[in-house]
Simulated scan of single mutants.
Amino acid sequence: MAKLQVTAKTKIFRIEIVLVDAEPLIRRVVEVPGDMSLAVLHQVVQAAMGWQNAHLYEFDIHRVRYGPPDPDWDDGVVDDSAVTLSRLVGAGDTAGYVYDFGDDWQHLLTVEAVTAPEPGVRYPRCVDGQGACPPEDVGGVPGYAEFVEGLGDPAHPEHTELVEWWGSDRVDPHHFDLAAADRALERLAWTPLPAGRA
């Protein structure tokens, strides 16, 4: 499959992704081409947040649900590979995104701005963020809080079990590595706008 190209007509969407109700705050800010499908935006969210793409997901935009189609069941979900970001939202709009219907990780995506592309810049890219991504299968936001508390307290009744599961007694919920989050998006890169084409 040929790499997609950023052109002078491409609109770049700056999107803040917030993991709802998580403490401390877990957020990422990404910049993506507006012509990106929601299916690829899902991959951007996964990579930037630090998820492992091991569970189902769904977007909710203007009360319409988007996600991967299920050929065996018509559940009213619109095929997310058939729609682009720019056709659904603009600056100031929000979208819901849920990952893992068991753990129910709710995310709020907010389009902070829509701008022209910068020549030579790789998109998508992660430009800001904070907070560590919770581990998969930890039990959602409440389970993550218990996980952090249990790992940090040797007297906690589940401390030993959590250390065995995690492989360590250390976790830093405030840790965020911007360079690593941005590197995780390299595999999704569009060919940059050449210099002199802005």
Rank of each mutant, 00 (worst) to 15 (best):
Thr94Leu: 00
Pro142Lys: 06
Val6His: 01
Gly102Leu: 01
Tyr144Trp: 15
Ala132Cys: 10
Thr110Ile: 10
His107Thr: 11
Pro157Gly: 06
Leu193Ile: 06
Ile61Thr: 02
Pro157Ser: 03
Ser86Tyr: 08
His55Ser: 02
Gly150Arg: 06
Val18Tyr: 09
Val141Thr: 09
Asp93Lys: 01
Ser81Asn: 14
Gly152Arg: 03
His159Phe: 00
Asp172Thr: 05
Gly139His: 10
Gly67Ile: 02
Thr110Gln: 06
Asp128Ser: 12
Leu85Met: 06
Val138Cys: 13
Arg183Glu: 14
Val20Pro: 04
Ala195Trp: 14
Ala39Ile: 08
Trp165Asn: 10
Gly92Ile: 08
Pro124Lys: 01
His107Cys: 03
Asp103Glu: 13
Pro119Asn: 03
Val83Gly: 05
Val18Ile: 13
Arg197Gly: 05
Ala116Asp: 15
Thr160Leu: 11
Gln52His: 15
Arg87Met: 12
Gln46Lys: 00
Gln46Pro: 06
Ala179Trp: 08
Arg197His: 15
Met1Gly: 15
Pro194Asp: 12
Glu31Leu: 03
Gln106Ile: 12
Ser37Asp: 02
His159Ile: 07
Ala184Ser: 15
Pro134Leu: 07
Asp74His: 08
Arg187Thr: 11
Pro69Tyr: 01
Gly152Glu: 01
Ala8Glu: 13
Asp72Lys: 09
Val29Ala: 02
His174Glu: 15
Asp93Gly: 01
Ile15Pro: 02
Pro134Phe: 08
Ala39Pro: 09
Asp104Ser: 14
Glu136Arg: 04
Asp100Phe: 05
Pro24Asp: 01
Phe101Tyr: 13
Leu88Trp: 03
Gly120Pro: 06
Tyr144Pro: 04
